[in-house]
């Protein structure tokens, strides 16, 4: 089992398998991520990186094994509790998953609205997080009017706005040029410095020197090793 350096585990995977019919996407993975870890999950296409993140976010159910997040067994979580669980995490999706008919403000505010936060707090918090990602001037724009990099920054702002204790990001910089990628990683480092545990799935090894992180290698669904950047 590969474990982090911190004392307090926030994510634990025990012999996790994920199969789609006869195809195995995740094969017997054991992994522990401790509080405030910065983890890159890397590997070639089809290695199981996205599947692993989807399992952690309860978008998929494990076929075998067990996943604990903050001590919660994800296999035993009731359907009605899934929204509450997801609110405690942030997820930056590979395809951003922004609502095109909502403005940038509304996309981000939605996360806070689901938790029933006060409207005055939302009106302060959303511009604040947009300033962090450098998009305060795009607050009333609709996602289709934004560039790929801008959409990704909105997606990060949305994932970060509720101060999640874990942030998952899938192929974070796939659409970004070097400057935008630096900015995005600056944001992640900022969140990490505030205590957020960050897990980034990427196949791009050029990102590893952008943060001091654990690098976990996946290949054909298997965990093949770990190193540090």
């Amino acid at each position: 089992m590969i474990t982090g350096t911190g004392a307090e585990p926030v994510i634990q995977l025990f012999h996790v398998h994920k199969r789609y019919g006869s195809q195995t996407a995740i094969n017997d993975i054991n992994l522990t991520v401790t509080k405030n870890d910065f983890v890159f999950i890397t590997g070639p296409s089809g290695a199981g990186k996205t599947t692993l993140l989807r399992l952690l976010f309860l978008q998929e159910a494990v076929s075998e094994g067990q996943i604990l997040v903050n001590g919660i067994n994800l296999q035993r979580i009731r359907r009605a509790k899934i929204p509450l669980f997801r609110r405690s995490m942030g997820f930056v999706f590979q395809d951003f998953r922004l609502i095109n008919s909502y403005t940038v403000y509304e996309n981000i505010a939605l996360v806070l609205e689901t938790t029933g936060q006060d409207i005055r707090h939302i009106r302060k918090k959303v511009p604040h997080v947009l300033r962090m990602v450098g998009l305060e001037d795009r607050i009333h724009a609709y996602p289709p009017r934004l560039s790929g990099g801008e959409q990704q920054r909105v997606a990060i702002a949305r994932a970060a706005v509720s101060n999640p204790f874990i942030l998952l990001a899938d192929e974070l910089t796939g659409n970004l040029d070097t400057d935008a990628a630096d900015m995005v990683f600056g944001l992640l480092r900022q969140l990490h410095s505030r205590g957020t545990t960050i897990i980034v799935a990427t196949h791009d090894s050029r990102l590893f020197d952008k943060a001091r992180a654990r690098i976990v290698f996946l290949n054909q669904g298997r965990l093949e090793g770990e190193t540090k950047s």
């Binding site: 978008q59 997820f91 999706f93 996360v111 609205e113 938790t115």
Partner: peptide
């Protein structure tokens, strides 16, 4: 349906 799916991903309950 996509909007509803995204709402669920950001933690919206069925009631919301």
């Amino acid at each position: 349906r996509e909007e509803v799916e995204i709402m669920r991903l950001v933690g919206a309950t069925d009631a919301f």
